[in-house]
């Protein structure tokens, strides 16, 4: 769990680059992927409605951590997609939300863990997965992570800006 500046900016950078090679991914769909990059961290709903309280009320185990998984983001992306109107918009919104959320999980993988392994098995739920060794690049509050994300996003923004400017000139 890097912080949200990092997740949102890296999603912006990645999907803007993808948009250079795609017919239909434009700024408005990049924006949807940026929203998607926050979805896994909706597990912080725990701070609003504690999972222990939900578990007490339902009488079964309950953990908001289920949202920070492949299964969780599939369902959340489905909810988001239904907030759009046409079939095509819904399909694209689903794809971009899911891709953005998946980018979040990927960025979260190489964090530092005391036992030296990624927690891929939890992120991939319900798909069975091992726990491969982690490079241990960062822990959540490391400030340099957001600095790197800012530099990457700034570079992509500049390239995108000049590319669009060149295109409008040549037209």
């Amino acid at each position: 769990m890097a912080e949200w500046v990092t997740h949102v900016l890296l999603a912006y950078a990645f999907f803007t680059v993808v948009s250079w090679y795609s017919e239909w991914i434009d700024e408005k769909w990049v924006a949807v992927a940026m929203v998607g990059s926050i979805l896994p961290d909706l597990n912080r709903l725990d701070m609003v409605l504690s999972e222990d309280v939900v578990s007490y009320l339902l009488g079964v185990p309950f953990s908001w951590g289920g949202l920070h998984t492949v299964g969780g983001i599939l369902v959340l992306s489905g909810i988001g997609a239904l907030l759009f109107e046409t079939r095509m918009q819904q399909r694209r919104a689903f794809g971009m939300l899911f891709a953005g959320a998946l980018s979040h999980l990927v960025v979260d993988l190489p964090q530092r863990y005391a036992d030296g392994r990624m927690i891929l098995n939890s992120y991939a739920f319900p798909i069975p997965a091992p726990r491969p060794p982690t490079p241990g690049w960062y822990v959540s509050p490391d400030r340099w992570v957001a600095v790197v994300a800012l530099v990457v996003a700034g570079t992509v923004f500049a390239l995108d800006y000049y590319q669009k400017k060149k295109r409008t000139h040549s037209e």
Binding site: E51, V54, S55, L58, V60, P61, F62, S63, W64, G65, G66, L67, T69, G71, G72, V75, L76, G78, I79, L82, L83, F125, P126
Partner: peptide, 19 residues
């Protein structure tokens, strides 16, 4: 559809908590 998927979110969180 959204209501059904919100129930599914609950289901994922219950299944996850049991894993």
């Amino acid at each position: 559809g959204i209501a059904v998927l919100i129930l599914a979110v609950g289901g994922v969180n219950v299944a996850y908590a049991s894993a």
